[in-house]
Design a protein around this nucleic acid. Structure first.
Lengths: 109, 109
DNA sequence: TTAACCTATCGTAATATTACAATCATTTAA
DNA sequence: TTAAATGATTGTAATATTACGATAGGTTAA
């Protein structure tokens, strides 16, 4: 046990859950917000922004990379991180589709 | 360790991460989609919908309740579950605000 | 009442996540 | 070349999550 039974769900459901999971930590929210605010690639500035150990931040960055949300480019001895614009748009679209307008009927308890 | 350091993030960041977490499992996505599709309260039908043990589904329902996304009303020996319309609208709003349009400048690597 | 039914809760095992120190790999500056 | 700087990776401990059997607590039907 302890392992999600992905096989009993649709691919879409698994994917959406995965997307949510990528953002289900305040550090990753904070990193994304920082990159959005910078509105540019950020080179070697992220560790100083959060009170977390370098290894921890690197781990969170890796998860965001795996989720496709950010891209890292090596620049000298820094790494520059950007929001992946296409993935971002995709996330926005998928989330919006999930949170479509909902108007319950009167047959509710 | 192994414990999220909530105190170093803003309340908003923690809250948003919590919201994402509530939906970061395909079973919970599936349950919400089922309730949305039914567009009504669903009384004692959910366990039959998913190939998960009753205890597991009850656990997921509890998490969705804790997140405020659904409400359960006891009706005889069934429990009727509904989407919480207000919470749903709130989620939609917060998520949309996070996924604001993003137009990176040309100073990206 | 008794039995069947439905759901929540408890206990527990397996796995995942979070955090950090230590270390490794690479690049730049001296 | 050597040393400093930067970030990834490894190893590990603490905690959380996922799943399920067993059981408890209700309600309804017989």
């Amino acid at each position: 046990m302890g392992l999600t039974k992905s096989e009993i769900f649709t691919e879409k459901q698994n994917k959406l859950a995965q997307m949510m999971k990528a953002l289900a930590h305040p550090a990753r929210i904070a990193i994304i917000q920082y990159l959005l605010k910078a509105n540019a690639c950020v080179c070697g500035d992220i560790v100083g922004e959060l009170e977390l150990a370098q290894a921890t931040i690197s781990q969170h960055l890796k998860e965001l990379k795996n989720a496709g949300l950010i891209a890292g480019t090596i620049d000298g001895r820094n790494v520059c991180y950007c929001i992946d614009k296409k993935a971002w748009a995709q996330y926005r679209k998928e989330f919006a589709a999930f949170f479509v307008e909902y108007q319950p009927k009167d047959n509710c308890c």
